[in-house]
């Protein structure tokens, strides 16, 4: 049997072991996602990349492609659910784009634009999440964390440092720093770490570097997310 499946009617080739999103990216088809990153093991938690495989919903970052699959991706139903998930992420944290230096370069914001999110819809939680400014080079603004765990995976799997972790359960899940004090300054984290480059939102910020790129020239100002398939170079 040939190594292809169909994605919204288009024939997509794949190699053994590839997930649906990997094969789709390679074929130039965008599937919205936040916690997926091509360089890391999938986490399967944000659920934005949910597609329908033979009529059943599944995360395309964890589901391996197999021959003859019929996959739906860019449908009104799936995009409405993705939009609702995105709205929940916005109200669960404190996402004030006008005062965020990642605005314009933010994958969450760009994805919300892509999905046509005109409002947060739900009631805001306005959680209290103090920032960690202890590190000389990097500021951690937990207000914007979407729990994608990319920094956790990068620090653990690439840097070999285990600087970050997700702690707590359910709605109480939150990002922590693995130090007795809980402060980033008391870890061996550096700017050169892979974990410093992968945050899709505005949590891990390089100090003295904010708003360097003017409005109009930022990453998603001119090219919407998904229009140029740049998944291979994601991160900043």
């Amino acid at each position: 049997m040939s190594h292809t499946f169909t994605l919204d009617g288009k024939t997509i080739p794949f190699e053994d072991g590839q997930t649906i999103i990997q094969a789709a990216s390679k074929a130039g088809v965008f599937i919205p996602h936040l916690c997926y990153h091509p360089e890391f093991k999938p986490h399967g938690s944000c659920k934005l990349c949910t597609v329908k495989v033979n009529g059943r919903q599944t995360a395309s970052c964890t589901m391996r492609a197999s021959a003859g699959m019929v996959v739906e991706n860019n449908t009104e139903e799936l995009n409405a659910e993705r939009r609702a998930l995105t709205q929940m992420l916005f109200v669960e944290g404190n996402h004030f784009c006008p005062s965020c230096e990642t605005s314009g370069n933010c994958q969450l914001q760009a994805t919300a634009y892509h999905l046509g999110m005109m409002s947060p819809h739900y009631d805001h939680f306005f959680p209290s999440r103090p920032v960690d400014a202890s590190h000389p080079e990097v500021l951690l603004d937990f207000n914007r964390c979407i729990l994608c765990s990319l920094c956790v995976r990068a620090s653990r799997d690439v840097d070999g440092k285990n600087v970050f972790a997700l702690s707590g359960r359910g709605i109480k899940t939150h990002l922590i720093v693995n130090a007795r004090s809980g402060n980033l300054a008391d870890t061996n984290f550096t700017l050169k770490d892979k974990a410093a480059q992968v945050c899709p939102v505005g949590v891990i910020l390089v100090k003295r570097n904010g708003f360097a790129v003017p409005i109009g020239e930022r990453r998603y100002d001119n090219v919407p997310i998904g229009d140029s398939l740049e998944t291979a170079t994601e991160g900043r």
Partner: peptide, 17 residues
């Protein structure tokens, strides 16, 4: 509702914590 403040509280909502 027009603008960030009407939609998510915006700058004045920075006092919420």
């Amino acid at each position: 509702a027009i603008g960030a403040c009407a939609i998510n509280g915006g700058l004045p909502a920075q006092r919420n914590h």
